[in-house]
Amino acid sequence: MAVLTVQNLSKTFNLGTARESRVLDDISFEVKGQTFVSIVGPSGCGKSTLLNIISGVEEHTSGDISLTSDAGGPARMGYVFQDPRLLPWRSVMQNMMYVQDDQSPATVSRAKEYLDMVGLAKNADFFPGQLSGGMQQRVGIARAFAVEPDLLLMDEPFSHLDAITARGLREQLQDIWAQSKKTVVFVTHDVVEAVELSDRIIVLQPGGLIYEDITIDLPRPRRQTDKNVATLQAEVLARLEKLKAMSVAEPVA
């Protein structure tokens, strides 16, 4: 099973003329295989930076990151971004295949399978510009799952969508995840979303420190209307309010 280990990770941005901004400060955590972990926290606490470092898009200043793969070879990652990031001049299917290691018929049929799971099998030949924002994001999700990643990173994938579309996609994501059981690190600022989707929530505080690590032990599939989900959401929200109050009283430089 894929295991992500983050040890003493720090990230400092050099702002020039000897000014520095520390975004992540010596954080450590481990994500075991087949776990859905959410990273939550207020804006600017380093959630997206953490994800970009894990994915390799950004360099880290110090610390270690390791990812063991299921197959034993180099670890494979999938990434669902805030915006769909599809090639506008390629069809939906071509976008799915663009990120695949091999272009074999088996991979093509796997890509089709995931498109089918997000309800877009009929739109395989469409250009992204012919799809709505929600449909494009579904392609982004299908693309990420179709590479069969050891680790799937998701950076606020529903934040640009309207509430109804976002809710539908969250439910769809839960269904796909239940079937694939991929290891997921999901960044969000929405506690409601985090409780609904996650096995575990890591709360980051401004300055890039881990404030709290919460285990969510609720049966799946979870829906916002479930009483237990709503209670836990309120509880986590209250803890975050406390963090916010602390941050205002003692602003982190």
């Binding site: 390799g56 999938g78 990434y79 971004f81 915006d83 990031r85 663009y98």
Partner: peptide, 21 residues
């Protein structure tokens, strides 16, 4: 830049990046 980062994340081979991106 976003599409380049996406390609980087998925380790898309150089030749394919030139052709499709």
């Amino acid at each position: 830049r976003d599409l380049r980062d996406m390609s980087e994340t998925y380790n898309v081979p150089f030749g394919r990046r030139v052709r499709h991106l």
